[in-house]
Amino acid sequence: MEFASEADRAYANGAFIAGADQFVPRWRAAAAGFRAGMRGELGLVYGPGARQRLDLFLPDGPARGVLVFVHGGYWMDFDRADWSHLAAGAVGRGWACAVPSYTLAPEARIAQMTREVAAAVRAVAARVAGPVVVTGHSAGGHLAARMACEGGPKVARVVPVSPLADLRPLLATGMNATLRLDSAEAVAESPALLRPRAGVGCHVWVGGQERPAFLWQARVLAEDWACPWTVEAGRHHFDVIDGLADPESALMAACLDGL
């Protein structure tokens, strides 16, 4: 397997996961099936952009609070509709779950995506009473962590899953031709180089079989924020999020227990 650079190899996930090409159609089928049978509101507008929409899934009875899931895709791919099934864990616990889309690169820079996700979280908090918890996967884990930093919306907890916490290594990757990160933005948008606001809980989650770069990213964030982190044995970058669909999973406990 050849890569243009060591940086590209470090952040290539699918190339090192058996059957990687089967995951996206599986996610989309599961998401469509979940939407078909759930209470909720689809396509709620939280801003003027075409992708500034969110889906809100509701439990039976009053919600205990709301979990916001921010999807990944290296800030360049996917849509909220690909991930609806991951709301099952929160809804099964009596929580609402919101899944926003946001403007992707190259149309938007990462700093704009941070602002959009913050606007989505504020819109959700205005609709659902109770604590707000933000989780997200990979690039979505980065955006979830940013919600805990200065200037972010009011949240009780963030649970970044396999997050990109220090963006500086991405400057050397081929994907940066699309992301258009420069050194200043990489520093300003790196949660590991920032600090969480007082009173915001954080728990970092990562799969034990992930690329070394993602294990490093998760550890750096947990160490710099002095927060708990869990390395889930046997999980790789594509299945580490499966626990969000299971109300009884350890990942859901990390998101919602004690709130």
Rank of each mutant, 00 (worst) to 15 (best):
M1E: 15
M1F: 13
A4R: 15
E6H: 15
D8F: 06
R9N: 08
R9V: 05
R9I: 01
A10G: 06
A10Y: 00
A10L: 03
Y11V: 01
A12Q: 11
G14H: 13
G14P: 12
A15M: 13
A15R: 10
F16L: 14
I17E: 08
G19F: 03
Q22E: 15
V24C: 03
R26H: 14
R26N: 15
R28M: 14
A29H: 14
A29E: 14
A31H: 04
A32W: 11
G33W: 07
F34V: 05
R35A: 07
A36R: 14
A36E: 14
R39T: 15
G40H: 05
Y46K: 01
G47N: 05
A50N: 11
R51H: 03
R53P: 04
R53V: 11
D60L: 11
D60T: 12
G65P: 01
V66T: 11
V66N: 03
L67P: 04
V68A: 08
F69E: 10
F69T: 10
V70Q: 03
G72Q: 04
Y74A: 06
W75K: 04
F78A: 01
F78T: 03
R80F: 00
A81T: 15
A81C: 14
W83N: 04
W83M: 06
S84E: 03
A87R: 09
A88D: 13
G89N: 06
A90S: 10
V91D: 00
A98P: 00
V99E: 00
P100K: 05
Y102F: 03
Y102K: 00
Y102S: 00
T103K: 10
L104A: 03
L104P: 06
E107G: 10
E107I: 07
A111H: 13
A123C: 15
A126Y: 05
R127Y: 09
P131M: 05
P131Y: 02
V133L: 07
G136D: 07
S138G: 11
A139C: 08
G141R: 01
G141F: 01
A144M: 07
A145S: 02
R146S: 09
R146H: 10
M147K: 06
E150P: 10
G151T: 13
A156H: 15
R157S: 01
R157Y: 02
R157I: 01
V159E: 05
V159H: 01
V159Q: 03
V161Y: 00
L164P: 05
A165V: 12
L170E: 04
M175D: 12
T178F: 07
L181W: 02
D182F: 00
D182H: 09
D182Q: 13
D182I: 09
A186K: 08
A188L: 08
A188N: 13
A188M: 08
A192R: 04
R195A: 15
R195E: 13
P196I: 00
P196T: 02
A198N: 13
V200Y: 04
C202V: 06
V204W: 04
G207N: 12
G208H: 02
A213V: 06
L215D: 07
L215H: 03
Q217I: 09
Q217C: 11
W225G: 02
A226E: 08
A226M: 07
P228A: 06
T230E: 11
T230I: 09
V231Y: 12
E232P: 10
A233F: 13
R235E: 08
R235N: 13
H236Y: 10
V240F: 01
I241D: 08
G243A: 09
L244T: 07
L244W: 06
D246E: 14
P247Q: 13
P247S: 14
M252D: 05
L259Y: 09
